[in-house]
Simulated scan of single mutants.
Amino acid sequence: MKKTFEVSDRLFELYHRVHRLVNESMTEEGVSLARSKFLFFLSKLGPCRSTDIACALNFAPRTVTEAIDGLERDRLVMRKPDPEDRRAKIVSITETGRVVLEAAEHPRKQLIEEIFSALDDEQLDQLYDIVSKLVEKTDEIRRRKEEAEGAEVAVAR
């Protein structure tokens, strides 16, 4: 059991170190990793409501609104009235946002390549398989938990 926790701790340590390095390199290019998630989402899926962004990225609506406020202030996104709901706004990435996102993606990719160059192709394949198994297991646990919560709600009614 001790080995399991040691490996888990090392994975979390790796994640945080990579996250910090990637965030620093992207920020130097004008957009943090967190802000780039919003821009990337908008660049791939196109204009949408902030509630759609919150749901897709699993963020609180207020967090999304605050992030969009900042991105709009920096002219990386823009809001327009939703033609179907006068209370809502449609958010879209601007050309400036696309340029900044593209500029920040280069150092991110370069850094990831450099980090993973520590592994040969066989090790990279093995790591991919191992991480995939762990992702599948977490998805299985999440599904079981959601099913159990759904059953509890049904019983409570």
Rank of each mutant, 00 (worst) to 15 (best):
27 T>G: 12
28 E>D: 15
28 E>Q: 15
29 E>M: 15
32 S>I: 09
32 S>A: 09
33 L>T: 04
34 A>I: 11
34 A>V: 14
36 S>I: 05
41 F>T: 04
49 R>E: 12
50 S>G: 14
51 T>R: 09
51 T>L: 06
56 A>N: 05
57 L>P: 03
58 N>W: 03
58 N>E: 13
59 F>H: 09
60 A>I: 03
61 P>M: 01
62 R>Q: 03
62 R>I: 04
62 R>S: 05
63 T>R: 02
65 T>M: 06
65 T>E: 11
65 T>F: 06
67 A>V: 01
68 I>N: 02
72 E>M: 11
72 E>G: 08
73 R>Y: 12
74 D>S: 15
74 D>A: 15
77 V>A: 07
78 M>C: 12
80 K>M: 14
80 K>W: 08
81 P>I: 05
82 D>E: 09
82 D>A: 10
83 P>T: 07
83 P>R: 05
86 R>W: 08
86 R>M: 10
86 R>A: 14
87 R>M: 12
87 R>C: 06
87 R>I: 05
88 A>M: 13
88 A>P: 07
89 K>F: 10
89 K>H: 13
90 I>G: 03
90 I>R: 15
90 I>Y: 06
91 V>D: 06
91 V>M: 04
92 S>P: 01
92 S>A: 12
93 I>Y: 04
95 E>A: 10
96 T>W: 04
99 V>M: 09
99 V>P: 04
100 V>G: 10
101 L>S: 05
101 L>M: 05
102 E>T: 14
104 A>Y: 03
104 A>Q: 03
104 A>M: 06
108 R>V: 00
109 K>E: 03
111 L>N: 00
112 I>P: 00
112 I>V: 04
113 E>G: 02
113 E>I: 00
115 I>A: 00
116 F>A: 00
120 D>N: 04
121 D>G: 01
121 D>W: 01
122 E>V: 06
123 Q>S: 02
123 Q>N: 02
123 Q>W: 00
124 L>V: 01
124 L>W: 01
125 D>N: 08
126 Q>L: 11
127 L>Q: 02
127 L>N: 02
127 L>E: 02
127 L>C: 05
128 Y>P: 02
129 D>T: 05
129 D>A: 12
130 I>A: 13
132 S>L: 11
132 S>T: 12
132 S>N: 08
133 K>M: 10
134 L>R: 07
138 T>V: 10
138 T>H: 08
138 T>W: 06
140 E>V: 11
140 E>Q: 14
140 E>S: 13
142 R>W: 07
144 R>Y: 05
145 K>W: 07
145 K>A: 11
145 K>H: 09
146 E>A: 11
146 E>H: 10
